[in-house]
Design a binder for these strands. Structure first.
Lengths: 242, 242
DNA sequence: AAGGTGGCCGTTGTATACATTTGCGGGAAA
DNA sequence: TTTCCCGCAAATGTATACAACGGCCACCTT
């Protein structure tokens, strides 16, 4: 089941382990041992070490004092704070874009993405995968518009966590009914952000981006208010410590 | 000269390479080869790889497409943006502290640090090393008061870059005359931040922390305005791409 | 019974040989 | 001359054996 054939052993191990951690198959705090993993995956310790190092880089593992690795554990508070952090970073990207000014063609690209999302809305049934993809593109483009490599890197880094991605929960099928109603408001915020950036209104752009991220926080809180059974279908939250 | 005796080969290699990069001895963009480094350091490829992986984790190296590593290059813009980012993160820490409320003893600790800095000022000549240490402690404590592990980690991560540290330039001896005059204002900002947090004034706490970081940016700009010769004594900026 | 102390075993650290990949350069053909 | 392709060399990927470190437990001593 986990024998993807792509690339090197280290890459496969990385993918497998990442998936297990994000799935919650390995509890937070669990120490990972090179030999055990190597035997289980049928490879030697060397590629395992490489994979573990990359997972530490992705902040999914902590380095323990003795030199080993342990799975990082995410409490609800951490998920909320991480979403807050994304809001802060995207807010900064939006503010910098406004303050520094964005070339016309870059703004045009942003508006084009918004237009494509509008087009999706004109259909009777919403194509959630399509929306998710376009939404991700919009947010990536926002980071790009900051014209700051430093900010862009930080944003890219943080959204590797599935629950911190701008399109978190959009692909999770358990509660789409409630979600769909919020998409219209989200799109209005997209529009307002680009408007603020166009007018060089830094403070407005920043606070819009922050509020925009709050929607994700509301989703988390809504999901956690439900019965556990209903949460089964939400892979983005599977990593949560119980 | 580089044969510190502490710990493992990997640790020594990490320290040596980190120092070289921060010193600017290895130009940004330079690709690092395992074999070459191993031979030069007199160790095998294995600990070299480990060291390179950690440096990538510290964002001092980029991973190249083929699987190798290259020294990250920092332009002036990147330094400025990184300081801005610290301001944003510390601002967020201050805001969260204010919004969430900070236990009395934690606030007391913050005030104690401020008091110790006051005491330094009462001397005729300022003990810069002492100020630097206390200032670092104050900022670390601020991150702690956010009561957010996520935010705290981000701040700790970013201030490993010497020019992004809250006490950057304080230990660089070339221009202390100009700096000393700014310390009083900085201390007033420390005081105001704690006041804002005590009164649960989130927005005020945030904007104070941001403005506080601007001082570091001014220092960079001042230093870069000087003749190159005068910059020799500023190790924090040695990494800058020429 | 309590405390120290020895050694075993599990874990990471390191070196090294070999496999695999990739990028570049040179040569041949169009 | 240009382009394509082949092959070599240099780089990373991998396995494996052994070293070194450390924690734990059992046993011995007082």
């Amino acid at each position: 089941m986990s024998d993807q054939k792509s690339g090197t052993h280290a890459q496969r191990a990385l993918i497998t382990l990442r998936q297990r951690i994000l799935n919650g198959q390995i509890a937070g705090g669990t120490r990972l041992f090179e030999v055990a993993l190597a035997e289980e995956l049928g490879i030697s310790r060397t590629p395992v070490r490489a994979a573990l190092a990359r997972l530490a880089e992705e902040a999914l593992l902590d380095r323990t004092s003795g030199g080993g690795f342990a799975v990082r554990s995410f409490a609800v508070r951490d998920v909320v704070d991480t979403i807050e952090l994304r809001g802060v970073l995207e807010g900064t990207a939006a503010r910098l874009a406004a303050e520094r000014g964005v070339p016309a063609d870059m703004l045009a690209q942003a508006r084009e993405i918004i237009r494509q999302i509008d087009r999706l809305f004109s259909n009777e049934t919403i194509d959630m995968e399509g929306y998710s993809a376009l939404n991700t593109r919009f947010h990536a483009h926002l980071a790009h518009m900051s014209q700051s490599d430093v900010i862009q890197r930080q944003i890219e880094r943080i959204i590797t966590l599935p629950f911190a991605s701008p399109s978190a929960f959009l692909d999770d099928h358990s509660h789409q009914l409630a979600l769909i109603k919020t998409l219209g408001a989200a799109q209005e915020q997209h529009r307002a952000m680009i408007d603020a950036i166009t007018n060089r209104e830094g403070a407005r752009a920043e606070s819009l981006a922050r509020e925009h991220a709050r929607a994700a926080r509301r989703n988390v809180e809504m999901l956690l208010g439900q019965e556990a059974a209903l949460r089964e279908g939400v892979p983005s939250l599977a990593i949560l410590a119980t």
